[in-house]
């Protein structure tokens, strides 16, 4: 009895507004995915999109953060003019560019043959070794840089101690004796060495990442191609050069693009190795380090924002040039 009375009003009301109920249901259905996505959208909007627009706004203002938000003053293009005529900006850009080259090129020159070697070694060894090479990549950059800072240290660092051992050892003296004139080397104190010291850390940290990309790439190449080449009498080197390398092009293109972008944004390694920009900073400071200094030490947010846009354009230009020259072939003609 009660069940019947319950059903009737229900059918009645749904009969009265069938469209509205249906529409609500549809709307709910359509919007459901957005509800699920909303946490991401809100977080990305707050920390990803908003800062980009705020930076554009900021780059046209002079603002000392310590004076509060209300102290922002519109200055037009002044920050850009000031930055583009700043010799330090060009110096740091040159530093960044050189360190990007010194660390970037060896990364790929080592990673490519290494990935091929791993392939030759077979599955088991490959899994273990790839993991080992990948380990530096997942380790905290700050921790890595601090360890290297200790290794680079002038008097007690393992690098200088090893060099001294080579230079004075009875077996090795004839070859390395000349090092005695140079030791101890100030790896992280001297402006003449700092770029190499930083670049080596970057190389060491990211070479494994590229090895992983290239082993993955090599795994996509069918074994039949290698077999066919072997039957035709190609040796290991020829198989690498004539078979593996051309087919790896899209992977090389991808990995090099990431290297360009990553290296131009270099911050942590030089920051730690120059001890917070307090030694060998003339040659060791990157653009990112410089804009951090302007923003947080010199409290000039507007100028720092302008520099980060300049850096953005520079990275854009480098990547664009790379695409222009290598894009078509890099992407396998697509």
């Amino acid at each position: 009895m009660s069940a019947q009375t319950d059903i009737r009003p229900a059918t009645l009301s749904s009969g009265l507004t069938p469209d509205r109920g249906e529409r609500m249901k549809q709307l709910w259905h359509k919007s459901t995915p957005y509800w699920f996505m909303s946490p991401y959208i809100i977080i990305f909007g707050t920390f990803g999109i908003f800062p980009v627009f705020f930076m554009i706004y900021l780059s046209f203002h002079q603002w000392n953060p310590v004076a509060g938000l209300q102290s922002m003053r519109y200055v037009g293009l002044e920050n850009y003019v000031l930055s583009l005529t700043d010799p330090m900006l060009w110096q740091t850009m040159w530093n960044t560019f050189l360190m990007a080259l010194y660390s970037g090129i060896p990364q790929h020159l080592v990673a490519l043959p290494m990935a091929y070697l791993l392939l030759l070694l077979g599955k088991r060894a490959r899994h273990w070794l790839t993991t080992a090479y990948f380990l530096p990549y997942v380790t905290s950059t700050i921790a890595v840089s601090m360890i290297f800072f200790v290794m680079y240290s002038k008097e007690s660092g393992i690098i200088n101690l090893s060099l001294a051992w080579l230079a004075n050892g009875s077996m090795t003296q004839w070859l390395f004796g000349w090092l005695n004139n140079l030791l101890p080397l100030g790896w992280v104190q001297e402006n003449s060495l700092i770029r190499y010291s930083v670049s080596f850390v970057v190389f060491w940290k990211y070479v494994g990442f590229n090895i992983v990309i290239y082993t993955a790439g090599l795994a996509t190449i069918s074994d039949e191609l290698f077999e066919a080449a072997t039957i035709d009498g190609a040796n290991a080197w020829q198989r690498f050069y004539h078979v593996a390398l051309p087919l790896l092009r899209p992977f090389i293109f991808f990995a090099v693009t990431l290297t360009i972008i990553g290296n131009m944004n270099l911050f942590d390694e030089p920051y730690v190795l120059t001890r917070g920009l307090s030694q060998a900073s003339t040659n060791g400071m990157t653009i990112s380090n410089y804009l951090y200094r302007i923003a947080w030490e010199w409290l000039d947010m507007g100028s720092a924002a302008a520099i980060s846009w300049i850096l953005f354009v520079v990275i854009g230009v480098f990547t664009g040039l790379y695409f222009w020259f290598f894009g078509r072939r890099g992407l396998g003609g697509h």
Binding site: S153, K154, Q189, R275
Partner: peptide, 13 residues
């Protein structure tokens, strides 16, 4: 001088 940056491990040493 030793040309060692202040507040580094070598300086303490």
């Amino acid at each position: 001088d030793a040309n060692i940056g202040e507040w580094t491990e070598e300086w303490y040493a």
